[in-house]
């Protein structure tokens, strides 16, 4: 079955793209925290839980938010939209924070709200909660962006009707180095997209293209 990328979003190098449009840009990024907060404010999202998330979840949350709220008109049932994400450093960014809190036995205050984010798939949980997604989900780890693995995993889900569509992407952050890209993948027969967007075939080449700075 032919599959299409019917929308995608990109966050990295201070730039945010929704499909091919540049929607946010900061030339000099002081910290990831300031950057992502500025993006959240610009998009006027009212979701106080955002502030409680760790950096990986904030990054993934914003990327999915732009993808689903603005870039695709599809209305997906809770069980019919899958989420498959990957990265290189898992939850290491937050692991370091938790490790810091237990370094000293005389000031030993591990925080439950930090510890809960020391699992890479929590970002998927946050996206699922926000959009009410109850279907298939998976978090994969690879040294570098690996379009072949992602494509295989997502294609199997769609080919076997485990979901009607799938958010497929890469969400990587360590300190102030970050990059996220998410594509919405649908079967050609039922795909929808917004006016003006030219859907791309769901191939390794397309995935390699959208992860580069646009």
């Amino acid at each position: 079955m032919e599959k299409l990328i019917t929308a995608y979003t990109y966050i990295g190098e201070g730039k945010v793209f929704a499909n091919k449009r540049l929607i946010f840009y900061q030339e000099k990024i002081a910290t990831f925290a300031e950057f992502i907060k500025a993006l959240y404010k610009q998009e006027q999202i009212a979701y106080p839980k955002f502030y409680k998330m760790d950096s990986l979840s904030k990054l993934g949350f914003m990327c999915a938010e732009l993808l689903l709220r603005y870039e695709n008109p599809g209305i997906f049932k809770p069980g019919s939209l899958a989420v498959v994400l990957a990265n290189s450093s898992s939850s290491l960014d937050t692991d370091l924070l938790h490790q810091e809190s237990i370094r000293n036995r005389s000031a030993y205050f591990p925080s439950p709200s930090v510890f809960v984010y020391t699992l890479a798939n929590i970002v998927i949980g946050e996206i699922c909660i926000r959009h009410g997604l109850k279907g298939e989900n998976a978090f994969l780890v690879s040294e570098k962006f690996n379009p072949s693995t992602l494509k295989d995993y997502v294609s199997e889900i769609l080919d076997n009707h485990r979901a009607e569509a799938c958010i497929c992407g890469w969400v990587e952050i360590l300190g102030n180095n970050f990059k996220a890209v998410m594509a919405l993948v649908e079967n050609e027969s039922t795909a929808t997209w917004i006016n003006g967007f030219k859907p791309m075939p769901f191939t390794e080449a397309s995935l390699n293209e959208i992860i580069k700075v646009n």
Binding site: F109, P110, S111, P112, S113, V116
Partner: peptide
Amino acid sequence: SIDALELIVLLEK
């Protein structure tokens, strides 16, 4: 529930 646990840490810290 996580906030409740976090408040326990606050009282201790």
